[in-house]
Write a protein that binds this DNA or RNA. Structure first.
Length: 109
DNA sequence: CCTATGACGCCGG
DNA sequence: GCCGGCGCCATAG
């Protein structure tokens, strides 16, 4: 498959622990994609390629739910996060620094 | 081939 | 610490 980076991104997103979140840049850096935009683009397609991955655990560097409009309905992203214990305020993850999970942290190479 | 756009992020003012 | 600008890479037209 040419778009193999899709698979890498989806695999990594699936490794995000429940109740934790990460950002696009961290994923791009962990997979050496070189661009956080690529991660966002892949996730935008994720719903039709791999609808079961926890894409709601990926937010931007500010902790904002920038991709909420790609959910159905949009508020479902915050809903899923709150269900995992992540508090959302004004479409933003509260205590983002503590909730942040680094992909490299999970690998522990 | 070139231009525009996007679930982004860093840098300089 | 907010704002504007630029870089980044993949896909669409």
């Amino acid at each position: 498959m040419k778009k193999d980076y899709y698979h890498q991104i989806f695999e990594l997103v699936c490794q995000i622990p429940e109740g934790r979140v990460t950002n696009y840049g961290a994923i791009a850096d962990a997979l050496a994609l070189g661009s956080a935009r690529t991660v966002g683009y892949a996730l935008s397609q994720s719903h039709q390629i791999a609808p079961l991955i926890p894409a709601h655990r990926v937010v931007n560097r500010k902790g904002e739910l920038s991709g909420r409009h790609h959910f159905n309905p949009p508020e479902r992203m915050a809903q899923l996060l709150e269900a995992e214990g992540v508090q959302i305020k004004n479409h933003t993850v509260q205590d983002f620094d503590a909730r942040f999970w680094s992909p490299l942290e999970g690998k522990t190479d």
